[in-house]
Amino acid sequence: MELYFAGIDIGSTMTKVVILKDGIITSIIGPTGPEHRRLANKVMEDALKKSNLTLDEIAYIVATGYGRINVPFSDKQITEITCHAKGVKYLFPKARTIIDIGGQDVKGIKIDGNGRVNDFVMNDKCAAGTGRFIEVIAHTLGIELSDVGDISLKSRNPSTISNICTIWAQQEVVASLAEGIPVSDILAGIHRSLADRIVRLISRLKIEDEIIVTGGGAKNKGLIYAISGLLDRELRVPNEPLITGALGAALMGKEILERSIKSNIPIEKRKRILEEVEV
């Protein structure tokens, strides 16, 4: 009998669910609000509805992301570092380096041929170098976040953004606008600045091909172009770069259950209830 597995990734800005059978059958992405537990229920309900499944039919559920402890129905919590590695390896068997550009942090992950994490680095102390940085700048320039990448690629003369602090860079952008510098040049400069921060962080790892970029930042073509230029290497981006953590979580669940069956050692599972949670 084919079993179903679910992975739920509660990131700082987005929550993702993947339901897996022999391949991905459903993936859902929704914004993370302040009420993690309620949202976890909601997103999982949506995913189950879309898959025409009930929670009882899911053999194993793994939660990941920084909100992973707030998923009351998950059987296990695993860090997003391990889950991204697993998810990326599934999509790109030759992957060795992962750059995950999230809403509020950036990670570099080195994996081996089996998708195991060899090393990792994280920027978790500063908004500079994260998706939040781009959001702030897009807001300052009055443009949609989804348009940022395309506009920046039109630049012919990228400006220099020397401040690495998000707040000071925002001021520098305002000053550049006042000088009449085109928005495309400012955005290209912002992407270079961001790429510089990201590349410096991940250079602490021994970067090897293939390099896969995940997270919301991977959807920004201008940023991918800037990172690729600095590294002088080709970068690969999944079709849906936000779900690799949730996919990895579902795959981890599959692996755990299969190992349990093989070794005949029972594993602990949580009650399958989407409980009402008071927040």
Binding site: Y66, I78, T79, I81, T82, R116, V117, N118, F120, M122
Partner: peptide, 10 residues
């Protein structure tokens, strides 16, 4: 602790 968790998983 997130880093420690990831290290322990490794």
């Amino acid at each position: 602790r997130n880093k420690i968790d990831a290290f322990i998983e490794t």
